[in-house]
Simulated assay, not measured.
Amino acid sequence: MPRRSRSLEPGNYYHLYNRGNNRQNLFFERNNYLYFLKQFRYYVAEETVHVIAYCLMPNHYHILIYLRDDSLSAAMHRFTMSYTNAINRRYQRCGSLFQGRFQTLHVDNDRYLLHLTRYIHLNPVQAGFVEKPEDWEFSSYHEYVGIRRGTLPKLKYISEQISTPAEYRQFMKSSDKSPLHSIQHLLFE
């Protein structure tokens, strides 16, 4: 595959996303979601990024990160190969699982960062899988509102704007969704 045309610079925020090849599922059962997160933590999050928010959907994922060093592309390659190989072995399939390389959007201000967390956490609601974001197990929303004490998402990156679970719940219900128009194209069918 060709190299990424723009460089990813440490010290910046990025929205990572990708979907299944030919829009097929990436996850086939609950354990696949858990394994994906475990492998992402091992290959990518431990050294390369801080995860700010994430949501795993049946055929795609969204991960909002703070980039700590310049090895993201290599780490993501190792991660996606590991996950693909495991899924291919488990389900006796072969070939690509992901639709090419992961995609990135640079997040250039705190307001956009905060609104992007809402977009990510509302993804299963928008897709009609659940009525409320807390009903979707495979997102960091649970950490944001104090339902779960997971260690993958680092909430400190939004704590200057929203400091308590109650404030985040209120933010999720607010009608100010103005920055979301710039990311609507990310909705996967």
Rank of each mutant, 00 (worst) to 15 (best):
R149H: 13
Y54A: 03
Y144G: 02
H62S: 03
S163W: 02
A45C: 11
L114V: 12
P2D: 11
L186R: 00
I120T: 01
H106P: 05
G146T: 10
L26M: 09
E137F: 08
E47W: 08
G128R: 08
Y91L: 13
Y91I: 02
G100I: 02
Y33W: 10
A86R: 08
P153G: 08
M172P: 01
I183G: 01
R3D: 13
E29F: 05
L8M: 10
E143M: 07
K154W: 07
Y66K: 10
I162F: 10
D135E: 14
R3A: 14
I120R: 00
Y43N: 09
Y168G: 04
M81P: 00
E167R: 07
L26V: 06
L116K: 02
D176S: 05
R41E: 11
Y35R: 14
P124D: 04
Y144L: 06
E47L: 12
V51L: 05
P58V: 05
F98H: 03
L187K: 08
Q39A: 11
D110E: 15
T48P: 01
Q184I: 05
R118K: 15
A86I: 04
N31V: 09
V145A: 06
A75H: 12
R101K: 15
Y144F: 15
D110M: 11
Y91K: 07
Y112E: 09
K154V: 15
P133H: 06
N59E: 04
H106R: 14
A127L: 01
Y66Q: 05
